[in-house]
């Protein structure tokens, strides 16, 4: 196995998850990660095993943000992309945040709000679909999701309150 192949196999999965966390689009994420490896390959760049992951993560993140920057505001909102691209500037490593958010969802939201929140954000259902599923109004779903976002914001960014 070559050095390059070793790095590819070791970091591909991590980079793909990271790209998908930003783009929410598995196919587009695959393209971005492949392009990052292709750039390294084409340039004949030798990556050090200790810094390869960080270097590639920065390349992938920048590539994702470039794609987002090309989109109009409406398209960014529709795909839940950041408006300020600096949002992800220091957020390469997401493990800690994942744990914090999962914990907040489980402990800070009441059962009913958590159920609705998970249907929207994990199952990717629209508010209309959730409303139909639970026999409630779309407005009621809007309110619950809004409330959940408020609680999560207060939990994740306590200093800003």
């Amino acid at each position: 196995m070559t050095h390059f192949e070793d790095i590819f196999r070791k970091h591909y999965g991590y980079l793909l998850v990271m790209a998908n966390g930003i783009l929410h689009d598995p196919e587009e994420s695959r393209d971005v990660v492949s392009e990052a490896f292709a750039a390294v390959w084409e340039q004949g760049r030798e990556l050090h095993p200790n810094t390869a992951r960080q270097y590639l993560a920065v390349c992938v993140r920048n590539s994702c943000l470039k794609r987002i920057a090309r989109l109009q505001l409406r398209e960014r909102v529709a795909r839940l992309y950041p408006i300020e691209l600096s949002l992800f500037a220091t957020d390469i490593d997401r493990e800690d945040r994942v744990q914090l958010i999962e914990q907040a969802i489980e402990t800070q939201l009441d059962d009913y709000t958590r159920t609705i929140f998970k249907m929207c954000y994990l199952d990717k259902k629209t508010h209309r679909e959730v409303a139909q599923c639970l026999g409630i109004s779309i407005k009621a779903v809007d309110k619950r999701i809004g409330k959940a976002l408020r609680i999560l914001r207060e939990t994740l960014n306590p200093k800003q309150q």
């Binding site: 192949e5 590819f8 196999r9 591909y12 999965g13 793909l16 998850v17 998908n20 966390g21 930003i22 929410h24 598995p26 994420s29 695959r30 492949s34 490896f37 292709a38 909102v77 839940l80 992309y81 950041p82 408006i83 300020e84 949002l87 992800f88 957020d91 997401r94 945040r97 994942v98 958010i101 999962e102 969802i105 954000y121 994990l122 809004g146 976002l149 408020r150 999560l152 914001r153 994740l156 960014n157 800003q160």
Partner: peptide, 30 residues
């Protein structure tokens, strides 16, 4: 904006794990 950014942070973090076949990806790349 703060609420919208929170939603992004949540999505960024809880995006379901992708099933990755590294072997297939490597073959395609190579």
């Amino acid at each position: 904006r703060a609420l919208y950014d929170t939603a992004i942070q949540v999505m960024h973090s809880i995006e379901p794990k992708l099933e990755t076949n590294v072997e297939a990806e490597w073959n395609r790349f190579s």
